[in-house]
């Protein structure tokens, strides 16, 4: 397991993520639409399992496994329902608690922004570990944190770039996110597989 320094290959990983997305664009758009509609309709309760489904699809494509994932495979995330649900619930509640710091004048908002960016970076591989290695949410979060810690700034850079690409779609009244969000998932799946290696797959 990579708990030391990792060689973060920005260009290569983004290129591979883009290729994965481009080759299966139809499936990704429908899957993304399902994820967003169901997550919003259920007040975020199903965000965890739906995103786990997308992570599962991305990992199958990264590993070039056959058969290729289909649109309905986004519901595969329900095989990891409890852990993915708890992952989103627990870290969501922690973020909500942290957001109360904004009540402190001047530095409050800055503190919340820094903490949320740091937390998102630390947990960037959490959901992939739950899906790939069938880990429980807390050990997965801690393992993600331990791997990210020594490579914090390069991985933060990757997450910012991937996140910006994924959010480009929000310019078009937010609807474009359906098209661009899966690109972020693909880039992160490529990064996960490069950091943790194929042998890590259960």
């Amino acid at each position: 397991m990579m708990e030391g320094k990792v060689d973060v290959k920005f260009g290569e990983w983004i290129q591979q993520g883009w290729e994965l997305y481009k080759a299966n664009i139809g499936i990704w758009i429908v899957a993304s639409l399902l994820v967003i509609v169901i997550s919003v309709a259920t007040l975020g309760i199903l965000s965890g399992p739906m995103m786990a489904g997308m992570a599962w699809m991305a990992l199958v494509l990264v590993d070039r496994k056959e058969p290729k994932p289909q649109m309905g495979d986004v519901f595969k995330g329900f095989d990891y329902f409890l852990q993915s649900f708890l992952f989103y619930l627990v870290w969501g509640v922690i973020m909500l608690a942290v957001s109360f710091v904004t009540l402190i004048p001047c530095i409050g908002t800055l503190v919340v922004i820094v903490v949320s960016i740091a937390l998102n970076t630390a947990l960037m591989f959490g959901l992939f570990l739950i899906v790939d290695k069938k880990m429980e949410f807390w050990p997965a979060s801690m393992l993600s944190l331990n791997v990210v810690k020594p490579n914090f700034f390069p991985l933060l850079g990757l997450l910012v770039v991937a996140g910006l690409i994924g959010q480009v779609g929000s310019i078009a009244c937010g609807i474009g996110v359906i098209v661009t969000m899966p690109i972020t998932v693909c880039i992160l799946a490529v990064a996960y597989r490069n950091v943790f290696g194929v042998q890590a797959a259960a």
Partner: peptide
């Protein structure tokens, strides 16, 4: 048969 996750999701949303 499988579907434990879906059943649990339905239960949680029902109770909510």
């Amino acid at each position: 048969v499988s579907g434990r996750g879906m059943a649990m999701a339905g239960l949680i949303m029902g109770y909510v």
